[in-house]
Design a protein around this nucleic acid. Structure first.
Lengths: 303, 303
DNA sequence: TCCACTTATACTCATACAGAGCAAAAGAAC
DNA sequence: GTTCTTTTGCTCTGTATGAGTATAAGTGGA
């Protein structure tokens, strides 16, 4: 037996590619026979000069999309994170990318954030599913464990705690531990029960990775002008607001949002207008110069 | 020749372990014949269940310290990040740990942040080295390149730009590119010139990793109560303030700092006092409960 | 043509909070 | 006691945010 030593360590790159269309944030996924997965593949040590370029390569190969903005998200490397693989130790470095939506190759498609995490969309109020299904089921799992009680309160905003859009991963992990997502069972080779709360499952720990990405992006919105990566060259302030709301998952006060964006010098009017069904709206474009003018541009933290 | 195939991929874990004593933030380093390095070592796929535990293990083996708080920092994996290694592709996952200072084993020691980055300490005003040495040398390297001009302005706060303590990595990278740190030369097997700005060099890209850690920690201070990991059980508000100032690298307004900390409910008095050379100060302790009370505790963002 | 409706935009007001400084309190050193 | 040092309490001001009111400028239908 020559040449094939057992692989003890393998490194995969996962891309969480986000776009927003029709007020819905979506993530790029690859279809499989079972659960959908993120575009991903191993690092080629000899030909991929950087991890980032490797992600770009895999995403393009599997979905046909060329990426613009991209940043490293997290490295996942716990033993048993992919029980389906067995002997090899899987490590994966996940990246977050943002694109203005375009059509991917046929083998790929877009999956709505809020199909993955229905409890995360608070734009039209607190989703019914939280108090109708999730909190009751969590409550019985939590029992009288002080720590679990605190986690539930803080993540799902029970007992007067305010909702914090950034805690996406904490919420997912709580539900995972409590056996409220399909992955809790799949990972242990158990059949998923019938009456789980809604929420599309994904392969491996990809839903967890996406939860990390959603939280990161929501946080970043408030202190870096990343939204503009998701928008066309020109846009109305309402469109901008709706994209931000879609990502943040909460509604924003329209007048104050405008004030914030304009005061921060993030945009400049183009003179042109777009008809909207009501009074026509002025078109704006992102002022790339803010980066070199303002100390830390971003869309404040009203949310 | 049997059994020794070329290693194509190796995974190392690096720990950036921070402590603050005598108003100086320090990072745990291991002495070597040449440049000091971070405690680090490869992942043992069969015995390290998680990356985090592997870091803890390596740090303890090499320095004798047991870690408390720890979080993942970044994964470095560019080809050529360790030119000294040659054929193997090195990947490293860095972690940031915080401890109340104790004595490490003899082979290890503490290195001051501000010996590594003398330009980062603005507690007693803008360091002379910036305008006397760094900015002049950068200016000639920058030339008329628009992008470089903007980077210098934003990172080193020239031309009325405010100083941003978080941009530690950006500053280090600018200096690296401009050939103002020893690593620029070491990495290319060139002898380092004599008249570099002050700043202790480290092995491999470890100074870059520490720069990442410093920036991350400075940022995190403002929205998570992490300082307390570095403090003893009981402390005066002045001690707390000095530790925060040491990390942030900027002076804080004493009265406002107190107001902030107390209003946030981060601490509670113990009744006891400590003599200080002036009026005795009350001793406080961290209120761990804030985590479950406040939505996002931290020490505001006055800095 | 006029009216109802929709969306965009301008402005106001109360409150909270950050930045800055003054002043008193409580000990130590002499 | 007096002086010095550090802690602690409090005030004042400007600015940013949260929330709401009012007006502008289109569309579509009666």
């Amino acid at each position: 037996m020559t040449g094939s030593l057992p692989l003890v360590l393998s490194l995969t790159l996962d891309g969480v590619i986000v776009a927003v269309t029709e007020d819905t944030p979506r993530v790029l996924t690859v279809r499989t026979e079972s659960y959908p997965r993120l575009p991903s593949g191993p690092l080629e040590p000899d030909t991929d000069p950087t991890l980032e370029l490797a992600v770009r390569r895999w995403v393009e190969e599997q979905t046909g999309l060329e990426l613009g903005y991209i940043e490293q998200l997290y490295t996942f490397g716990d033993a048993g994170r992919r029980p389906e693989v067995g002997d090899a130790r899987m490590l994966s470095v996940a990246y977050l990318g943002l694109v203005a939506e375009t059509d991917p190759a046929a083998s790929a498609g877009w999956t709505d954030w809020y199909d993955l995490f229905p409890w995360e969309d608070h734009r039209t109020g607190r989703p019914r599913v939280i108090d109708d299904i999730i909190v009751p089921r969590l409550t019985s799992w939590v029992g009288s464990d002080r720590d679990r009680v605190a986690r539930m309160r803080r993540t799902f905003a029970t007992a007067d705690f305010p909702w914090d859009g950034v805690r996406v991963l904490e919420r997912y992990e709580l539900m995972y531990e409590a056996g409220l997502v399909a992955e809790s069972f799949v990972d242990r080779n158990l059949p998923a029960p019938n009456h789980l709360p809604p929420g599309v499952a994904m392969a491996s720990d990809h839903r967890r990775i996406i939860a990390t990405a959603v939280g990161r992006l929501r946080g970043k919105l408030t202190y870096r002008p990343v939204v503009f990566e998701l928008l066309p060259e020109e846009f109305t302030l309402s469109v901008l607001q709706r994209v931000v709301e879609a990502l943040a998952g909460v509604p924003l006060h329209k007048q104050n949002f405008r004030r914030l964006v304009e005061r921060a010098g993030l945009v400049e009017g183009t003179g042109a207008t777009a008809s909207t069904g009501g009074r026509p709206a002025e078109l704006f474009r992102f002022r790339r110069e803010v980066t070199s003018e303002q100390p830390r541009p971003g869309i404040g933290r009203p949310w």
